[in-house]
Design a protein around this nucleic acid. Sequence first.
DNA 1: CTATTATTAGAGTATATACTCTACTCAGTC
DNA 2: GACTGAGTAGAGTATATACTCTAATAATAG
Lengths: 223, 223
Amino acid sequence: MKTRDKILLASLELFNERGERNTTTNHIAAHLAISPGNLYYHFRNKSDIIYEIFQEYEKLVDYYLVIPDDRPLTVADMTFYLESVFDGLWSYRFFHRDLEYLLDCDPRLRSDYRDFTNRCLAAMKTIFEKLAEAGIVQEQPEELREVMALNIWLVVTNWMAFLKTAHGSTGDEGLSLTALKQGIYQVLTLEMPYLMPEYRDEVLAIREKYRPVLPEQRDSVVA
Amino acid sequence: MKTRDKILLASLELFNERGERNTTTNHIAAHLAISPGNLYYHFRNKSDIIYEIFQEYEKLVDYYLVIPDDRPLTVADMTFYLESVFDGLWSYRFFHRDLEYLLDCDPRLRSDYRDFTNRCLAAMKTIFEKLAEAGIVQEQPEELREVMALNIWLVVTNWMAFLKTAHGSTGDEGLSLTALKQGIYQVLTLEMPYLMPEYRDEVLAIREKYRPVLPEQRDSVVA
DNA sequence: CTATTATTAGAGTATATACTCTACTCAGTC
DNA sequence: GACTGAGTAGAGTATATACTCTAATAATAG
């Protein structure tokens, strides 16, 4: 594997584990057992590394959110969208953690991220539309779809942060797959009132699979 | 005004404007035209300043969320809760911006914040309960109230961040009161499906007042 | 084999950051 | 009028951070 790619990979790993703020370029180099000079041979600066990682993230999510235009959407599609998006979010979780600072540092990133957000919101709106066409959710006015999409976006992008702040101790330890998936439960709860009777039970059954074992795990998960 | 209080005030101001990460103790001292030594005479370290500001924030929100137990809740109460919470959020907006890092730095803060979150969620659940008793929203199972409260919490606490990231350029300039209040619109949209027919129109009229002028302001607000 | 280019090491730098230390002032008090 | 102690100034420190520079080595092309 090329050094350049190794740098990207190690950066992502360290950013996710310890936060971008706590990860210096020297740390990254040390982690790979290469010299700082070497790192700066491959990247002009730290921002460039972050920018490139963002672009991967963007590509991944765009790929996940492709909407078939030759067939109606199914409940399975909806589940897949949710699962995928949370997976993507998990893989690049450092990004949403320090989002505001990162955008302040890099105007390119700010404008790209804005476009990215709008693209995601638009995709969500289309998904709603097609779910309505498929008779899974009720038809809704354009405007409501828009506001709903935004609410779901807020829940999805901040679910991870909530888990990390609401739970005990410091790090990732407490963040299990179960907890992660409770995010899907949250989103499906938002959609619930809009489900068509014919599909209501099916979707509720899926939702049930993501229900947290404990109603609310408010204690530290560490032993 | 005592130097100590001036430090707290200036810190909050600078944190909100430029972010905690971009505000050093030296900046704070310079802003007040006092020496760094003086600042450190009043506070052991930066964390202590932040912790104390958080306690103010906590007190304010706790005060806002007091629930009357001698009378049923009204639609006006609900509006007041929403308005107040967004005001509080605005006054201490730096806090949610760098939340994860701040909690990593200070275990006291982490545990206090966890309690604070739980208190807020509990208050929201109680508010739902009392709104149902008052016939404003439908009775819901305990579990649904809990999940709904959490969704609203996510929308409320991250609304500001969304505005700052989704809009153009860098700073606060774009963040108008109108934009801020669109957050209330988002929350009321979440509640909409659960409104009782008798109050539906009244609440929808209130919601309408917070509707953004433009459906989606996706351009930079700066001239 | 040679020339060129890509890659790397590693010491070094300028700047910033959180924080300390010493000394001074000045209001109140015995 | 000496004494105390809260309050303040301001220079100073240890450390870290992002990044640079030079020189050496590996890879590759002609």
